[in-house]
Nucleic acid binder design. Structure first.
Lengths: 237, 237
DNA sequence: CATAATTTGTCCGTATGTATC
DNA sequence: GGATACATACGGACAAATTAT
């Protein structure tokens, strides 16, 4: 897609400028952007060019546009998380947001996490363990790793269900996209017990790396799921 | 998305017309479309409107556009299948197309498949079983169900590795998108043996329904995967 | 409640750039 | 070089939705 860094179309340069303004907090989550015309005048380009830049950003889920109202910086509200980042659904019934119960929060170096998060091996990492439930039924055992440098003090907080909103509102870190790698594995004793299964049961293991607006990896997450009555949904198009 | 069927923007009406021309074989896979200007003149709209319609179709992987050359109906070549429809990758090394070995082909009614494919319960269904390998290592046991009415004679053919290309070239059925539901399950004797595992081993079960251009379900596929050294890749954005 | 102003959505036309043949 | 086709950029006009007056 971008094999010629020597030349970037104007609308893409505009996009980069707008993304940077969001990334650096000039425009914050939920806030309204200036109108297309104002941005165009500000940057000295045509309204159509701004429009194309915003169209791209809409496709990337970075902004939402509403006719007659304006363009808004996308928020990590529950609805968005649910559709964009939470792919585990009950076999029957509605898509729901899972309840979370935190088991532990630790702090210290962790070499594997450091490698994935692109940190020095000795850098401190926040490690969270929690169990998530759908319909009062525990079904996900989750290990989360964060660079402490980006989320200082997060380990002292009461952790909400929707972590990505906390990253955004509390630390100015916006998760823009993620990559998940799935495997089927045999349940360990501890996870099995927490989810009401038996050791050796087949569990779905989701290995997620999440990236911020500037494309840096900022969260590593391992989710072990008991998929008796839930499934992972993937749309191919 | 389409909550007001009373009004469709012009560019979307144009899109629908163009999709129908592909679906009915007026323009076939791999063929070049008329230029934007010619289509615009033909339909009596501006070139910009045709452009927006084609932009949408590009995003849906229905056509590919190449500057200086033209717009082409997307083909189900190996590269496209590999990226759009085959999400299972080796843990280390390159993305590769799996080899396939057909175990059996049967023909007859099958109530569960009929339900998913939206057929009458008595309608005949083609059922294919095959094993797929990555790097000489069998890792997928696959059950495939097709409506015989759409694919008459397919059960008598030599089945190629790339089935979607056969659907397209041989039967004019273009797979446009698919939905996959993933679970972790315990391996059955037969599947385990075929893939070199043991009964009870955790296998990844992929339940796929694939839809044609007109949004009708035309293929149901269950893939059981031994994910020892491969994983399912899902990009969230 | 009606009207005006604002903002995005759609549609059109034109000119120029870039890639391909 | 020339012809063709898509890509980019600009500008204008009207429609539809929302908000302020």
């Amino acid at each position: 897609m971008d094999d010629t860094p020597g030349y970037r179309p104007l609308y893409r340069q505009v996009r980069d400028i707008l993304v940077k303004r969001i990334a650096t907090g000039v425009w914050q989550a939920g806030q309204i952007l200036p109108s297309e015309g104002d941005i165009a005048a500000d940057l000295g380009v045509s309204q159509g060019t701004v429009r194309k830049a915003l169209d791209e950003m809409t496709a990337e889920n970075l902004v939402t546009r509403r006719q007659g109202r304006g363009t808004f910086v996308a928020r990590h509200d529950d609805a968005r998380i649910l559709f964009q980042f939470f792919k585990l659904l009950p076999d029957t019934g509605e898509r729901r947001f899972p309840e979370s119960r935190v088991l532990s929060v630790h702090l210290g170096p962790e070499s594997e996490a450091a490698r994935i998060l692109d940190l020095a091996e000795t850098e401190s990492v926040i490690r969270i363990e929690r169990v998530r439930s759908l319909d009062e039924q525990p079904c996900i055992f989750e290990h989360i790793y964060l660079p402490e440098s980006l989320f200082r003090g997060l380990d002292q907080r009461d952790l909400p269900n929707n972590l990505y909103q906390l990253y955004s509102v509390g630390y100015g870190v916006t998760i823009a996209r993620a990559t998940e790698r799935l495997k089927a594995v045999a349940a360990q004793k501890r996870e099995a017990k927490a989810l009401g299964g038996a050791p050796g049961d087949p569990f779905l293991r989701i290995d997620r790396t999440a990236y911020a607006l500037d494309s840096r990896p900022v969260e590593w997450r391992i989710s072990l799921c008991r998929t008796e009555s839930v499934h992972y949904l993937s749309d191919l198009r």
